[in-house]
């Protein structure tokens, strides 16, 4: 089950990197941007209800998200599965995953998420209130990958 979710997530993220991220970089009205964000969230598999366990929960102020983590014992690469109740949040979290999924611990220390979000003109979302839980998710990723 987890292996399938990890594979589906990796697949979805690859598509997002190829198709949606370049689109996001283009100027567009806010409606288009949000439509894209939501579309992109849909590329990641939904976490089945029974896997939405408290230990995976990342509680934002207004919505809940879940993060599952797996480190390949051979390559040392980190893989994630993630879901959120809120669609826009899921889209933003998916973008975040694009830059961290499949990386080793050493590679992860070099990831500058804020730079990537700047390039996508998404910086405001990263720094927005605790409401969207993006920063909480980032902290959770850092915690699980440095453990």
């Amino acid at each position: 089950m987890l292996q399938q979710l990890i594979a589906d997530t990796a697949n979805g993220l690859q598509q997002i990197c190829q198709h949606e991220l370049p689109l996001l970089q283009q100027p567009a009205d806010w409606q288009t941007k949000y439509r894209l964000l939501m579309q992109l969230g849909k590329k990641l598999p939904a976490l089945p209800e029974k896997m939405r366990q408290p230990e995976y929960l990342v509680r934002g102020c207004e919505s809940r998200a879940w993060l599952l983590h797996y480190q390949d014992p051979v390559s040392g690469k980190h893989f994630f599965v993630l879901d959120s109740e809120a669609r826009i949040v899921k889209g933003l979290l998916a973008i975040m995953l694009c830059f961290v999924n499949g990386k080793t611990s050493a590679e992860l220390t070099d990831v500058e998420l804020s730079r990537h979000f700047d390039a996508l003109n998404l910086r405001p979302y990263l720094s927005q209130s605790r409401g969207n839980g993006l920063n909480l998710m980032l902290q959770r990723i850092q915690t699980v990958t440095s453990a």
Partner: peptide, 21 residues
């Protein structure tokens, strides 16, 4: 079938201050 946060984010984008959650 939608989470209130999505609606609130889209209202915030249009400068309508509401609370969700």
């Amino acid at each position: 079938n939608e989470h209130p946060n999505d609606l609130a984010v889209l209202l915030n984008e249009q400068k309508i201050a509401v609370r969700a959650g």
